[in-house]
């Protein structure tokens, strides 16, 4: 069973429906006992970094999530949750993240131009991901090709201290990190649950990774 953790911030229905579509048993929950019982976890997130951290903490879910990760079980973070994995974020002031991956979260520079047009922030829409084949080995991302499109909506991006965590990068004014891996933790800045067949293929591969981890 894959726990889709409800802490009042994510598009949970889209995520659980997408997991069901690829044949996984997904349970939307905020119960630490159910979380502890799960073989895999998906944590979706939208909104602002400090609100998200506050909701996780206030609902007493930050510890169960970090415990789950520390037990080495497969974890998938989406969009804002990729950012929360980092040491610190700079949305609406400086805030601590979960501190799993060393690095920070910063904003796109809205004054930049792409040709004649302003660099629009949020970065919204379908953009391409290039995969780091070495860091993608033995992950749910290993069979993806470079240049496939995925759906993004975000104004901030992550800057890991070390590129060993980077599994995917995307160009938007600059080249930024759009997917990371730390042990059994995977996270994407884009929304696999909104990226049609290509996105579902990642969730399918994550489900298979979870099933393999069980056995």
């Amino acid at each position: 069973m894959i726990a889709v953790v409800d802490y009042g911030m994510g598009n949970l229905r889209s995520v659980s429906k997408a997991l069901e579509k690829v044949g996984q048993n997904a349970v939307v929950t905020s119960d630490p006992a159910v979380i502890d019982d799960a073989q895999g976890m998906v944590l979706p997130g939208v909104g602002a970094f400090p609100d998200c951290m506050r909701n996780l903490t206030e609902r007493k879910l930050a510890h169960p999530v970090v415990d789950f990760i520390n037990k080495g079980r497969p974890f998938f973070g989406i969009c804002l949750v990729l950012q929360l994995l980092f040491t610190e974020g700079y949305e609406l002031g400086r805030h601590d993240g979960l501190g799993i991956i060393p690095g920070k979260v910063v904003r796109f520079e809205g004054k930049a131009f792409v040709g004649e047009d302003k660099l629009k922030v949020p970065h919204m829409g379908w953009n391409q991901v290039d995969w780091n084949s070495r860091n993608c080995a033995d992950t749910p991302f290993q069979s993806l090709s470079n240049g496939e499109y995925f759906y993004f909506v975000h104004s901030f991006y992550v800057e890991p201290d070390d590129d060993k965590y980077t599994i995917g990068t995307t160009e938007y004014g600059i080249k930024f990190v759009s997917a990371v891996r730390w042990k059994n933790v995977f996270a994407t800045q884009f929304h696999p649950e909104k990226s049609q067949e290509k996105g579902l293929s990642i969730l399918r591969a994550f489900g298979e990774y979870v099933n393999k981890w069980e056995s």
Binding site: R13, S14, K17, E193, S195, Q196, L200
Partner: peptide, 11 residues
């Protein structure tokens, strides 16, 4: 919207 979100995985 509910029925759409069950079948379509795009924004």
């Amino acid at each position: 919207v509910k029925r759409t979100a069950e079948q379509i995985f795009m924004p």
